[in-house]
Structure formats: C-alpha cells, structure tokens
Design a protein around this nucleic acid. Structure first.
Lengths: 209, 209, 209, 209
DNA sequence: GATGAATGAGATTTCATTCAT
DNA sequence: CATGAATGAAATCTCATTCAT
C-alpha cells in the first residue's frame, strides 16, 4: 500500500515538526514525549516506530541545521565576487535563515547543553566552521574600509549574536518585514565595519524597500 | 555562637550561588535539587529550610538581576551629559554587567520560559524598560550623527544581542580582557550608529588599551 | 491473546479492590500507593496506567456506592405496598448492604474529609437523598403506629447510624448470621417507631430464624 | 515567674486543644505537626517541649476520653436505683457526652487505627468495658419489659452507634437543642427495648421540653 | 521554653523506554 | 504500524524528629 508508506513518512515528519515546535516553546528537558505524541495524534509507544530515542530526536531536529546554514551560505556566495557584496550576501543569508527557520536555530542555540558530549562536539565544530567563514569574509571585505579592523572575532560575534537574537523574536506576522530587517541589520554591520558608503551599497544590492 | 545565624544565612547564599552556577551550566529543568543540595553540602530536604520551591529559587536567582542592571545603568549615566558620552557609558555598563554577572544574565535570558506566567510578565516588563532606555539614548545620540537613524528598535536589539551573547562566552580567564571587549563593542555600536569620530570618542572616554 | 485486554481490565479492577481493602483497614491517608501496587503485584509507576491520581482512586472507590445503595433500595421497595412492609424492606436492604459491602460503605463514611470540596459535595448530596427517602418511608409507616412520631430526622439518623456501625464490625465469619442481624435490627427500629406488633410483622416478612 | 509556668501549661493545653480540633477536621494522618504548631502560634521544634511524639499526642487527645466517659456514667448512675431510670440516666449521659465532647469522641471513634497495637488494645478494652456496662443496664431494665430481649449485644450496639453518629453531626448552634436530642433518642431506645410507657417515663425523668 | 536548621524516610507523580499483542 | 501496559529511575516536596543555640 503506497498510502501506508506515505502515512508513515508523514508521521515521521509530523513528529519532527511537532518536536521542533515544542522544544522551541518549552525547551528540550521540559518537553515530554507524551506531549509530542499527543501533538501528533498518536500514543507514546508508537513514537518508537519512528525515532530511536528522545536524544536522537533532538539531534535530528538540530541536526541538519548547521549543514543547511553552511550550504545556504555557499549558495548565497556563489558567483559573488566583490568582497563587500559577499558580506552583504552573507548578512542577507544569515538573517533570512535565522528568521525563516527560527525555531530550529533557536533550539540549535539554546539546547546545545542537552546534547551528549560527542554530539555537542560535532555541532560545536560546525559552528566554529561557520564563524570561521564569517571571519574570512570580514577580513576580505576590510580592504574597502576606511578604519582599522577592530577585532575580527568580535565583529563575527556581533553578527552571530544578531542572528541568534533574531531567531528569538522574529514572527512572520510581526511588525517588520524580512527584507526590511535584513537590509537594516546589514547596514548596521557594514557601518560597524566602516565600509565606505555602507547604506548605499546595501540598498544597491538588496533593494531600497 | 554567631555561627548559628551566620550559618543559616551563609547556607541560603550558598544555595543561591550553586543554583545559579548549575542553572547556567545545565539549565533549570536539567538541574535537580539533589545536585544543588550536594553542591552546597546538605541533604535535599534541608533545602526547604531556605527555599519554598524550585521555581521560587529560579525567580530568586533571576530576581534582582534586571533591577541591578537598571540601577547600574542609572549610576553609569549620572553626571554624564553629552549624548554620545552617555551612549558610551551605556555600552561600558552593558558589556561589563553581562560579562561580570554572566551566569545570572545568561539564566535571565535562557530560562524565561521556565517561569510561571506572572513571574515571566514581571521580568519581561523590566526587560522592556531596559530596552526603552537604550532606545532613548540612541535617539538622543543621533544628533551627532552624519547618517540616518536606521531603525531604533533594531539598533537597540543589536546592542542587547551583543550583551546576551557576551554572557554566553565570556570567561574572566579567557583570551580577551574586559576593557578590550568593552571598548571594541562600543566602537562597533557607535560606528553602526554612524557617530562621527566613533573610535576616537570611545578611546577618549574608555582609554586606549 | 485475549489476556492482553483482559489483563488490563483485571489489573484495573484489582487496583480498585485492593485500594478499597487497604483504605478500609488503614485509612486513605495512611495507605500508600506503594502498598496498593504491592498488593496488586505491580510497581508503583504502573498504577498510573490505570488511575490518574490517588484522589481519583478514592473517588472511584467511594463513587458508585451511594448510587448502588439507592438503586438497591428502589429494587427492594418495588412491588411492596404496605408502608410497614416497605419499612421492613428498607431495613433489610439497609443492613444487608452495609454488611455485604462493609469495606466500601465504611470508606464512604470515614473518608469524606479526604475528598476535595466538589467531590465531597457530590457524595453529600447523595447521602442527603438517601436520608430523605428513609424519612419518607418513616412518615408513611407512621399511620400504623400507636405513639407520636418523635422526630423524623432523629429516627432516620438512628437507622443510618446503625448501618454505619454495622459496616464497622460485621464480618461474614463472625458470630452472628446476616439474617439474624437484619431481623433483630429491623425489630429494634420498628419498635422504636412504635409500630404495632413490630416483632411479629418482621418475623412474618423476614422469617423467624 | 508564675507567668512563665502558667504560659507553659497554657501552651501545653493549647496544643492539645488545637490538635483535637485539627485531628477532628482533617484526620490524624492528614494533620501535620506544622499545622498544629502554627495554630498554636509556635514553631514545630517548640512542640517537642510539650509533647514527646505525634502518636503520643493522639493518645493524649483520645486518652482520657474513655475514662471520662466511664467516670461520668458512674456519676450519672450514682443514687439511681430503678432499672429503667438507670437506663434513662445512661442515655442522657451518653448523648450529652458525645455531643458536648464531639470532637474528642469523634477522633476516638475514627482514629483507633492510627494507634499502635498496644495503645489500641488499651482503648479497645475500655470500649468493651463501656459496652459491657450498657449491656448490664439493658439486662437489668428488661424486667419492666413486655417483649423478649432481642439481642443484648445489638441493643447495645445501636445505642453506641447513635452516640458515635451524634458526635459526627452535632453542633451547639445547630437546629436542635441538646435536651431535645437527648430526650428523643432516649425514647427511641426505650421503645426499642419495649419498655412499658417509655415516652412517659423519659418525660418524667428528663422533663417535657 | 523557643527557634532555625538539619536529617532520613517516604510520599505522589512523571518520564523515557520496552515489548507483547 | 499502533497500542496498552509494565518498569526503573528519578523528580519535587513533606514530614516527624533531633539538637545546638
């Protein structure tokens, strides 16, 4: 029966979706498998036909997120050559990703401590990788700058902090549109890097809205 | 023996200290009263001579933090008149506070969801108050600026995001000194507000180190 | 295996049975779920597959008892027309019920205070209903009486008191047979209502044993 | 300081009074020493300057009650010679005692099971003693009776049941006066023993009210 | 005599997980 | 693939009791 399999896949996807939602709202520890099962419309025991443990479910939910982020960054940068344009592409991708996948990135940022050491190390490595790319982009963009590079690490940190923060408050039906948010934060970051004509360059790439 | 009373007070303080530490490391939900009691060196039941519930303990730990932050900001601003200087004073206070009391502010930012609605509302109100003050300082400093004010809310958010982030990674024995961090982040923020001569003004107020 | 479902239902029934027994012996507060679980032969946690709380278990145990009593009274009276015969039928039913279901009625009488207000009100209402029926039967039987009706409420109370008392001491293997007890108490009550020829009438209806 | 001692004695009495009240309302098991201490206005630890254990406190509260009851019965019967008059004196004393000291007798009847075996045996013996006296009085009064003595034990039981029941519902500010209750119940009992001219004899001794 | 603090035992309840059906 | 039931571990919290001050 094709339906059976489709149903099974749907159930598995449902579980991950509801888990993400509940982990984001109440936190991993405060979310019980009973709640997740109830949200999906099945009983606890049945969960285990689709997951192997709660921890694995968390890993699953957090799982692809960093890979996706890195992949999306690659894609956003592909074909972009000018260093400032690349920085703008980074910011656009960075903010958009943290907003559009707010729940997952929020979990990724707040539930690291719930992972067992090994899994945590995996994630931490990917985060370092992401930070490294940001630092590289910052360094490369610095050529068009009129002031000293203050501290690459802290520049990168402030970009990351903004993304993390966004995933905590952004709502699709909130008061600000995503392009508006992206554009503004990009200007803020470019200004902080003392990029010449920061605002105009952002408007040129991302539009004026 | 003075020890009797002093012992009681010391135990109570110990409990709050250890609770803050453990909440920061493992999270509120993942921290058991058993662990806290063990850290303090008493038995679980004895905790209840000093607290009335785990939730109240969390509230206690998170409790004064926002009041302290607001008070410290008041003090930092007192006597400072120039709007840009006031912004610098804000940033100095902001970063220093989030670094020096990293554990508490980290808990304050990550465990809001563990509070019952009423308590949460109390804290949320204080956070809004703090954000409001930041927005006011931003608006007032904008006079010395050569570029448009992008979006007060997002400017404030980026400052808050940086503070929150700092409380997550700062270690007194880490690679960067607190004055260095403060100075750099202040420059980053002033630059992002397009304050004229941002770096120099920060150096003038906070020193060159 | 049919046993699966049957096992579940049997366990649930077992729990209620053992709870009734233990509540009757030690009282609700003094009975731990551990003891109940042990009596049933399962572990404490497993209880919660069959009950939702200890309080609900008490309510469950006390639950049907008043309904059963009222239903049994209806049945005992059905087809009996003569007012004195109806009184005799009441007493027969009353004593028999309190003896045969001694544990449950004992709990029903002694653990009212352990119920939360709402549940208590439900039970209290049913008890008032039962008392009301007794009072009606007393009034109707009074026509065949040679003396004044002293006080309907106190007459009813004395009947109720006897039932409650019986549920406290009756044992199937005790020194007195149930018909003997029933017959005697019925005579006592009819005499106290000054029914003419009380003893003979009781013997005529319930037998001479 | 006389005041000091008086205060101490007062405290001890207060504790027993509040304990009796709380045991009667919530039951022994459901009453915590903390509640008792709070009702008295001291802290838990201080209780132990006046009691030696919670169990002993219960025994203390239940303690004298049976002795008092027996003593009061002796006194009520002293000088009364006629067997029916002695029965009336018994009933008057019995009901009055159970009403006036409702809380204590209620506890005495409902918390027997909370006593350790030895203490329970002591109390049980006194109750048997009391029942024995009632049975003797019944037998002696039977001479003035026109019908057979149905069953001495059950006659005694019904008297005891009425007393126990009274202690459960009597309130000084309730709808019925104590003399009214006493008189009515005495008539009920004398009628049930087929005492000739029961009502009149009761009225003659206890008054007509 | 009163108190604050400590303690060990135990209470109810929740949870992730397993497994036969 | 879903379920009901069982389980062991652990969690928060309460309690009677002790004792130094």
């Amino acid at each position: 029966m094709v339906g059976a399999t489709a149903g099974g896949l749907e159930t598995a996807a449902s579980i991950r979706r509801e888990a993400a939602r509940l982990f984001a709202v109440h936190g991993y520890e405060a979310t019980s498998l009973r709640e997740i099962a109830a949200s999906v419309g099945i009983k606890v025991g049945s969960l285990y036909n689709h997951i192997s443990s709660k921890e694995e479910l968390l890993l699953d939910v957090m799982g692809g997120i960093m890979d996706d982020l890195l992949a999306q960054l690659d894609q956003a940068l592909s074909g972009v050559i000018d260093p400032v344009d690349r920085l703008i592409a980074l910011m656009d991708c960075h903010i958009r990703f943290h907003a559009e996948r707010a729940q997952e990135t929020f979990i990724g940022n707040s539930e690291l401590r719930s992972l067992p050491p090994e899994a945590r190390a995996t994630i931490t490595a990917k985060r370092a990788e992401y930070r490294g790319r940001i630092e590289t982009l910052i360094r490369e963009a610095h050529q068009s700058t009129e002031s000293p590079l203050l501290n690459v690490r802290l520049h990168a940190f402030s970009i990351i902090a903004i993304g993390t923060h966004v995933s905590g408050w952004y709502r699709p039906d909130g008061g600000m549109s995503l392009p508006q948010i992206t554009s503004t934060y990009t200007k803020i970051v470019l200004r902080s890097l003392a990029v010449i004509g920061a605002d105009a360059r952002v408007d040129a790439v991302l539009g004026t809205d």
